[in-house]
Amino acid sequence: MAPGPWTNPPRPIPTPFVAVPGLLSAECRTDGQHHYLAVTIHPTPGAARTNVITGDVVIDGSVRREWGLHIVDLNLTMGNLIDIVRAQALTYRKTAR
Rank of each mutant, 00 (worst) to 15 (best):
Glu27Arg: 13
Trp6Phe: 14
Asn51Ala: 14
Arg11Lys: 12
Lys94Phe: 11
Leu69Arg: 01
His34Val: 08
Gly55Asp: 13
Val63Met: 11
Arg93Leu: 15
Met78Asn: 13
Gly22Asn: 05
Val72Asp: 04
Cys28Asp: 02
Asp60Ser: 15
Pro12Gly: 02
Leu37Ser: 04
Leu37Gly: 00
Val20Ile: 11
Thr91Lys: 14
Asp73Trp: 03
Val63Ser: 10
Asn75Phe: 15
Ile13Arg: 06
Thr50Gly: 09
Leu23Ile: 02
Val20Met: 15
His34Thr: 09
His35Tyr: 09
Val39Phe: 11
Val57Thr: 13
Thr7Ser: 09
Lys94Val: 10
Ile84Cys: 10
Val18Glu: 10
Val57Gln: 10
Asn51Pro: 04
Ile84Thr: 15
Met1Lys: 00
Ile82Pro: 01
Asn80Gln: 04
Phe17Asn: 03
Tyr92Phe: 15
Arg11Met: 07
Thr30Val: 13
Ile82Lys: 08
Leu69Asp: 02
Glu27Cys: 02
Asn8Asp: 00
Leu37Ile: 08
Arg93Met: 12
Pro21Gly: 05
Leu37Ala: 02
Gly68Tyr: 07
Thr91Glu: 14
Ser62Arg: 15
Thr15Met: 07
Ile82Glu: 09
Asp73Pro: 01
Arg97Phe: 06
Pro9Ile: 00
Tyr92Pro: 00
Ala26Asn: 01
Leu76Gln: 03
Trp67Leu: 02
Val39His: 13
Asp31Leu: 06
Thr15Gly: 09
Val52Thr: 15
Leu81Ser: 12
Pro10Leu: 00
Ile53Ala: 12
Leu90His: 15
Val57Cys: 13
Val20Pro: 00
Arg86Lys: 11
Pro45Val: 05
Ala89Gln: 14
Val57Ile: 09
Pro43Asp: 06
Thr7Asp: 05
Tyr92Ser: 12
Thr50Tyr: 07
Ile59Thr: 09
Thr7Phe: 04
Ala87Arg: 12
His35Leu: 07
Leu37Pro: 00
Leu76Pro: 03
Ile84Trp: 14
Ala38Glu: 09
Leu23Lys: 15
Ala48Met: 07
Leu74Cys: 10
Gly46Asn: 14
Tyr92Gln: 14
Leu76Asp: 03
Tyr36Ala: 02
Asp56Thr: 06
Ala96Pro: 01
Arg49Cys: 04
Gly32Phe: 08
Arg86Ile: 06
Asn75Gln: 14
Ile84Asn: 07
Leu69Ser: 02
Leu81Glu: 06
Val52Gly: 03
Ser25Ala: 08
Arg49Leu: 13
Gly32Ile: 03
Phe17Arg: 01
Gly79Glu: 07
Asp83Ala: 14
Arg11Glu: 14
Gly46Ile: 07
Tyr36Cys: 01
Pro45Trp: 07
Pro16Met: 11
